[in-house]
């Protein structure tokens, strides 16, 4: 991610998590982040076509319609999108999902519950 103002797409079926991200991303100091949200994989793909300049995807593994892994596979199969780093988020007991996600090309993962500090540290790593 290199543009001054960066767009982050949060794909999660919980509206509550959307709001938590909004708070945490707004509190990030190193650059201005613009958050976009999707409630499932289909909406996620739609958001990506609307905002081709999205620079980071935070992806929930556990979603009702189009699972996180399927969404990830589709993103990685699309030449225009495959370079976007995807960070999986899941609970600590979903090791299988995380392993499969990393194999499918995820940049990394974040297990819930996490603090904004951990999210910010991860953002520091991705954004330089």
């Amino acid at each position: 991610m290199s543009a001054r103002r960066r767009k982050v797409l949060v794909v999660d079926d919980s509206q509550l998590i959307h709001k938590m991200y909004e708070l945490a991303l707004r509190a990030y100091q190193r650059c201005e982040l613009e958050s976009h949200f999707a409630s499932d994989g289909y909406e996620g793909l739609a958001q990506l076509s609307r905002h081709p300049d999205i620079g980071l995807i935070m992806l929930d593994v556990n979603m009702p319609t189009m699972s996180g892994l399927e969404f990830l596979t589709r993103v990685k199969a699309e030449p225009a999108l495959q370079e976007i780093p995807v960070v999986l988020q899941s609970t600590e007991d979903s090791e299988d999902d995380i392993r499969r996600g990393l194999e499918a090309g995820a940049w990394g993962y974040l297990t819930k519950p996490y603090t904004p500090q951990r999210l910010h540290a991860l953002l520091d790593e991705i954004i330089d």
């Binding site: 609970t91 819930k112 519950p113």
Partner: peptide
């Protein structure tokens, strides 16, 4: 599986809110 998913999300959300008992 729907029920498990709801509970899983609840667990995650409760965790994020710092509500250990509910988690």
């Amino acid at each position: 599986s729907g029920t498990k998913r709801e509970l899983h999300t609840l667990k995650g959300n409760a965790g994020m809110m710092g509500l250990a008992d509910l988690q």
